[in-house]
Design a protein around this nucleic acid. Structure first.
Length: 196
DNA sequence: GGATCGATCGGCT
DNA sequence: GCCGATCGATCCG
């Protein structure tokens, strides 16, 4: 299975976000593969995007978003949850795609154990849920997802046709302005594995 | 099914 | 000190 390359992530963030739908996120844990098909993402683009963590400029926390594409930006929120982003675009410009939901493919037994026996449709139907199911935490913040020995990476899988892709405003974004309404949440329309 | 609310803590405006 | 790119429990209908 072909891995997605650095050049893939170096493209425009919205193009990458749309193309990531249908591709496979793989986590190697204790030598075994856990994976899922990406069915929901959100784009966060630049310091002008009032919903982006980089809206107040570069800090130690959001530094990975300013780094080279193809790296992970994992952050901790609400005192208990982790969320996974893939850094996109050119180095020096802060942008990333938040992975919001996955359809379980490989390693489902382990996911069920880490998710407290919830229904399979809810194993990874949310940004914090998928991090819990795949055991992704701060240890991956800044990690290179394109390295040959990466324990977290992306593989090429089935592309999603245009008529199966839907868009909506981003979830959980506060404040006002265009950041609240711009349709940068992209998802597979008929998937039962999307969030909410 | 939908609405509301508490948990819990690191980073920052 | 304040608040968040969330989740899950609980309450109501």
């Amino acid at each position: 299975m072909t891995r997605l390359s650095r050049d893939y992530f170096a493209r425009d963030t919205l193009i990458v976000a749309r193309d990531l739908l249908g591709q496979r996120l793989v986590r190697v844990l204790d030598g075994a593969r856990l994976s899922g098909r990406i069915v929901e993402v959100e784009a966060y683009v630049g310091e002008e995007d009032q919903a982006c963590h980089a809206r107040f400029g570069r800090t130690e926390r959001n530094a990975p978003m300013y780094g080279p594409p193809g790296h992970a930006y994992v952050y901790f929120v609400y005192g208990m949850h982790h969320c996974l982003n893939v850094v996109t675009g050119r180095e020096g410009y802060p942008a990333a795609v938040l992975i919001r939901a996955l359809e379980p493919l490989e390693g489902i037994e382990g996911m069920r154990a880490r998710r407290g026996g919830r229904p399979d449709a809810q194993l990874m139907s949310g940004p914090a849920r998928l991090c819990q199911a795949l055991d992704v935490g701060r240890q991956f913040d800044g990690a290179d997802l394109c390295a040959p020995d990466a324990l977290l990476f992306l593989e090429e899988d089935a592309a999603i046709p245009a008529d199966a892709v839907a868009a909506s405003p981003r979830v959980g974004v506060r404040g006002d302005g265009v950041a609240l309404t711009v349709p940068w949440r992209l998802y597979v329309r008929d998937s039962r594995y999307v969030s909410r």
